[in-house]
């Protein structure tokens, strides 16, 4: 009845796969962003589980990486959503199937 590193890594891998599925197959640009955020969360989970379980002389390094991933995810979400709103103002749609030419 124990929980090992493999359990956490499995959850992380499955979450990453679902995030990849969402990011590649959604029609809405914001849906794609949601998939990317899922993938980043899976990476965070993997980093923390390695930090907890691995043999290392400085286990805090995993936590610092997660801080940087959180920061970059926040910055990227802000810019991506600003791009989505800006594209919406020009094209009146954020459907990635229809925003495939520079000049519509």
């Amino acid at each position: 009845m124990s929980v090992d590193i493999e359990h956490f890594l499995t959850v992380g891998a499955l979450l990453f796969a679902v995030g990849l599925m969402v990011a590649l197959s959604k029609r809405n640009a914001i849906g794609v962003l949601m998939g990317v955020e899922l993938m980043l969360n899976a990476v965070n989970l993997t980093l923390i589980s390695f930090s907890r379980f691995s043999v290392s002389e400085r286990p805090i390094t995993g936590h610092t990486f997660v801080v940087f991933v959180l920061t970059v995810a926040a910055a990227e979400a802000a810019v991506a959503l600003a791009l989505a709103v800006s594209v919406y103002r020009n094209r009146d749609t954020i459907d990635v199937d229809q925003i495939n030419l520079l000049k519509s």
């Binding site: 197959s25 959604k26 029609r27 809405n28 914001i30 849906g31 962003l33 949601m34 955020e37 995810a73 926040a74 979400a77 802000a78 959503l81 989505a84 709103v85 919406y88 009146d92 749609t93 954020i94 459907d95 990635v96 199937d97």
Partner: peptide, 22 residues
């Protein structure tokens, strides 16, 4: 971030609210 996503959805009112696939 979730609040940001919700704001972006609100600021794009005439885009489809459906979550369909390509």
């Amino acid at each position: 971030i979730a609040v940001l996503i919700l704001f972006a959805i609100l600021l794009t009112p005439r885009a489809g609210r459906g979550n369909s696939e390509t």
